[in-house]
């Protein structure tokens, strides 16, 4: 397990919004090809953690490394970092004024400067792979939530990121659409994509994650292999959280 190279490393990361301290010293290491699931109650800091890694939020203290290179230095080119880190949001955030194809090719053509034909061919291939080939000329509002989220994943994948961050990507979906998105993520995991996934889907976390981290009040309270966290949680807070999840029928 520990033999693989480190893809992402967080050291004592702190982040506050106003007087509210959302992250209170987070340490986390993610190996290459590893899938780490972040679980925890709403407000425990999962989303903020992911947004900090993507530099959408500036951290107040601590350091973040991507493949050994510190990305939280002041002089770092944030656009260059974001090119290497894909993020998918809970609310999809597709560009409503662009077709699916344009959504996917915007960054590859404008940021990576790929020729139009090449960008479109790659995007089409990716869309095909995720069963969206016939939607390439549609506008996002015409798609189901599950389809939109799959497009959002394809959009991030098109940049060929070294690391994917998924921020509760199924939370905004109707229950019957959750599976199609989770299947896509499983496929990515099988393909060796390094991922950090904030999720409320505990059974998904259990069978996909190499490691599960329980966040509580801005700290990683407990982490370990999924089986261990879900069956023998050590911390009382983790036990409490999981009991509530089980009571809600989510595990």
């Amino acid at each position: 397990m520990r033999a693989r190279a480190t893809a992402l490393k967080l050291e004592a990361v702190h982040k506050s919004f106003g007087s509210v301290e959302v992250l209170r010293g987070v340490d986390l290491e993610v190996g290459e090809h590893e899938v780490v699931c972040l679980i925890g109650a709403s407000g425990s800091g999962k989303s903020t953690l992911l947004r900090c890694v993507n530099l959408l939020e500036r951290i107040d203290a601590g350091r973040i490394f991507l493949h050994g290179e510190e990305i939280t230095r002041r002089d770092v080119d944030v656009n260059a970092v974001r090119r290497r880190v894909g993020i998918v949001f809970q609310a999809f955030n597709l560009f409503p004024h662009m077709t699916v194809l344009r959504n996917v090719t915007l960054a590859t053509s404008r940021v990576l400067h790929k020729p139009r034909a090449e960008a479109e061919a790659e995007a089409t291939a990716l869309l095909e792979r995720f069963g969206l080939a016939d939607k390439r000329a549609e506008y996002p509002d015409r798609l189901s939530g599950g389809q939109q989220q799959r497009v959002a994943i394809v959009r991030a994948l098109a940049m060929q990121p070294e690391l994917m961050l998924l921020d509760e990507v199924t939370s905004a979906l109707d229950p019957e659409l959750v599976a199609e998105v989770l299947n896509v993520i499983r496929e990515l995991a099988d393909g060796g994509m390094t991922m950090v996934i904030a999720t409320h889907e505990m059974s998904f976390a259990r069978d996909t994650a190499n490691r599960v981290c329980f966040l509580d009040a801005g700290r990683i309270l407990e982490q370990g292999p999924a089986e261990e966290i879900f069956t023998h949680p050590r911390e009382p807070r983790t036990q409490q959280f999981l009991e509530r999840i089980i009571a809600a029928g989510r595990l």
């Binding site: 947004r51 993507n54 959408l56 656009n79 260059a80 974001r82 090119r83 880190v85 894909g86 993020i87 949001f89 609310a91 955030n93 597709l94 560009f95 915007l106 960054a107 404008r110 940021v111 959009r155 991030a156 940049m159």
Partner: peptide, 21 residues
């Protein structure tokens, strides 16, 4: 604002985000 976040997360600069999104 989530539109800007989505565009910036893809590596688009602030100017590109304004122009295309």
């Amino acid at each position: 604002p989530s539109q800007e976040a989505a565009a910036r997360s893809l590596g688009l600069s602030r100017a590109q985000t304004l122009r295309y999104v």
